[in-house]
Amino acid sequence: MKRPEPFEVFQPVSIPEACELFRKHGPGGHFLAGGTDLVIAIKEKGLVPRYVVDLKKIPSLTGIREASDGSLTIGALTTMREIETAPLIRRKYPFLAQSAAEVGSIQIRNRATIGGNMANATPSADVAPALLILDARVKISRSDGEKIVLLEEFFIGPGKTIIQQGDVLTEILIPPTPPDFCGEYIKFSPREMMDLAYVGVAVGVVAEGARKRCRDARIALCAVSPTPIRTRKAEETSNECKPISDVRSSAAYRKEMVRVNTRRALLNAAAGYVDNLSWTARRDRRYS
């Protein structure tokens, strides 16, 4: 661990003020949300920010809201713990709540935010596949206005997104899903908790009628590509992902686990939601 070089910290109270700070101070600035990635980057990975803009004083960046059409808006500073525990998310998208619960420890989830997690674009981010199968979008504010892009197009590489200096990720938007939509997230890692995904698979299916004819199937993966991905050529997931070998596991094994866990997730999703299932019980479904 090294001593951080001194840097300035700003605490804007509005989004325009935050954008303006970046315009004024130029390159070398970093946003601070939960700090669970930034502080480690500074202390242990040699990141030297010129200045840091703390977003936590901006009131409009928190909260989970549902619109009358069923769409959801999640403020970028909403913590993983809030996603995990919010009754609205648990009822509507239990797999999304579960994917948030899979992140780190409760202490980490109390700090880590969904916006910070997306903006850091970690290939193994658990929440990303769950959002990808929901066709989630992100709202980005900049000094000259706002834009909304698909999360799928937001990630461009490990730690890289389309965000430019001074852009603020303000909201995650989840459009309405069909009434019969059912999703599932499986995190595959050797340890039960406190682990990074070796493979993360989220699937969503829309099964219609008594015979459960599948009208739509969506599959997204994390930890097996440079970014979390939506596998559009869904039935060929093993070919679409490009895992690497590292100290955790080999690429070949990761590919095998994508195949196995995708099938399991699809079968679970097709079986439909079970009411009032605890997330740990949900998680145990990875074994079936």
Binding site: P190, R191, E192, M193, M194, D195, L196, V247, R248
Partner: peptide, 29 residues
Amino acid sequence: ALHEELVVDNQGRVRNPSFLDYHLVTSLD
């Protein structure tokens, strides 16, 4: 039995000298 190994590469470097990649069991394991 199930998790722990101090991985040393062919340059003699320990590849997992942290609790991120060196897996101790948690209470759930």
